[in-house]
């Protein structure tokens, strides 16, 4: 592969890269970068975050209600299982 131009140019469109018909030289970092989206590269992902969203009172209430729901239901599951294991005479 020629190194004076981006390796795998046009690779995202599926065109065979310059100077080759069979494949891509993935030892060349430019070939790798030409196939991945900016946010797909591990090093790039490690450097960026979407950051916390603003949790409105409505969203907080929704999340808390879901948490209470799970806790109550888990207690009921335990009761139900105990009943199944030790059925009333």
């Amino acid at each position: 592969m020629r190194h004076d131009e981006p390796a795998g140019a046009g690779a995202r469109d599926g065109e065979p890269p310059e100077g080759t018909t069979a494949g891509l030289d993935l030892a060349d970092p430019r070939a790798v970068l030409s196939l991945l989206e900016a946010d797909q590269v591990v090093a790039a992902k490690q450097r960026s975050r979407f950051g916390h969203r603003n949790l409105t009172p409505g969203v907080k209430a929704l999340l808390w209600s879901m948490r209470v729901y799970v806790v109550v239901m888990l207690v009921l599951v335990v009761i139900s299982v105990l009943r199944a294991i030790h059925p009333a005479p």
Binding site: V32, L36, R49
Partner: peptide
């Protein structure tokens, strides 16, 4: 924060 702000993108890494 040591992180940059991520955003939805379809930019090719080679053009970043």
């Amino acid at each position: 924060s040591p992180y940059a702000a991520a955003r939805p993108t379809t930019d090719v890494a080679a053009e970043s």
